[in-house]
Design a protein around this nucleic acid. Structure first.
Lengths: 239, 239
DNA sequence: GATGCAACGGTACTCAGTACCAGCAGGCTG
DNA sequence: CAGCCTGCTGGTACTGAGTACCGTTGCATC
């Protein structure tokens, strides 16, 4: 029975001790001692005490970056909502470990903050990707990119946390659903793939009744391209 | 010329030293020494080194909580997008101090993480408020609350950061615009305040042409309440 | 056997944060 | 005036995270 490598022993010892006495009550010396290694060895394998719990967020971030770089989706939002699945998959593969980590981060605010900071890095990556993809440097587009990224991340986190709490049997299906919810939020009122025979109706409110604005509606539908939306109502955002 | 209180002197000294040598290169002893007080006094006024830079996030959070508790808006989203203005106002009142802090948080990742954690607390508050307000414990509603909170916060941060970077002359007007952008995202396809004489058109795509679905449209508009949306198209989310 | 290399353990240090104790000014009461 | 309480202060000593450096051991290679 050869001992498992030090890195594994350290992680195991850390989780065990965190469970037994709590995070703050456990020192690096405690962990190293239980793992049967020196204190120095701990820091050789993990940059910090927190890093034992979040080992490969950096790697995951790189994975996502690659996925985005090589993705060929029709819209930036689809590409992003595809890439974010990598995170979910990663957690699911970790299985029980991810849940133990969740139990810890729920109790220890320092760890929760650290987790949040990691998530913010994904979100930033997404925001930059979307903004670049849109190639529209206006303020409105930039705002929209920000909201899109935030929505995707929020939806993902929602599903992830449900799964971590054991409230979801099929997180993959749920994340699909959540992403389509997000996509529908931002689906452009007109344009995109219009002119393929269907009808796209723009959502708006107006003081006029239906018959009054019907001509404008008809003009919009038959016009095909987005062009003259001014007559029918004020447009919000959207490409 | 009597000296300003220790708390002020400490904050001034801290900012000055952070600018001169950087955040990590400045020790608490340095700050205390320049402020002309003992090390102990520093920790009496600020819980930690980071807290010198983010003095009153807790107070602000309470302010927002109160605002939400006493607000009487028509929808949760309006209440939240109103409450988030408190944050913007607070920063604007701080003026140049807020900008110096921003310059610091941009460079020092530890501070950036801390800032992000604070923002996450607002977002959580908003999420809980919206979820409670909706009173709908279903999964879909919970997801929607999460996305709403994230969108409001993202929109706010976008405007705030623009102002902090000196790119915005009128952040108050911009935040109004940004919030109305968010509101329009989530404006319910039907219902809410219909039947008051205006017209609310539902956004959807369909394979049929406009004339075919016009009767259904008309029925929706005249029906007043939300009821039979099924005939016209598939509905997404919403109350 | 000599060489290079990778992982390890130990010591000593800096610095953030905590705990505890002691001084000192001002206001209040007897 | 004396005594006392209170708020603010400074000092000292401690714990624990994280860093730097050095010496050792084990192992493979030439």
């Amino acid at each position: 029975m050869s001992k498992p490598p030090a890195r594994i022993r350290l992680a195991d010892a850390a989780f065990a001790l965190f469970d037994e006495r709590g995070y703050e009550q456990t020192t690096i010396d405690d962990i190293a001692e239980r793992a049967g290694v020196g204190r120095t060895t701990f820091f050789r394998h993990f940059r910090s005490k927190e890093a034992v719990i979040f080992p490969d967020h950096d790697r995951l971030l790189e994975l996502i970056r690659d996925r985005l770089a090589t993705s060929s989706h029709r819209t930036a939002l689809v590409a992003v909502s595809d890439a974010v699945r990598l995170v979910l998959m990663h957690y699911i593969e970790e299985g029980d470990l991810a849940r133990r980590r969740y139990a810890l981060t729920s109790r220890v605010s320092a760890l929760r903050d650290r987790e949040i900071a990691s998530v913010a890095r994904y979100q930033r990556l997404f925001r930059e990707f979307i903004a670049e993809w849109m190639g529209d440097p206006t303020e409105a587009a930039s705002l929209r990119a920000e909201i899109m990224a935030a929505s995707v991340v929020a939806a993902h986190n929602h599903v992830l946390r449900r799964w971590l709490r054991g409230e979801s049997a099929d997180p993959v299906a749920e994340v699909d659903e959540a992403m389509s919810e997000v996509l529908s939020l931002f689906s452009a009122p007109a344009g995109e793939d219009s002119g393929r025979g269907g009808t796209t109706v723009v959502a708006f409110r107006t003081g006029q009744d239906l018959d009054t604005l019907l001509p404008a509606l008809r003009r919009l539908v038959e016009g095909g391209t987005e062009a003259s939306a001014g007559t029918a109502g004020q447009r919000h955002g959207a490409s």
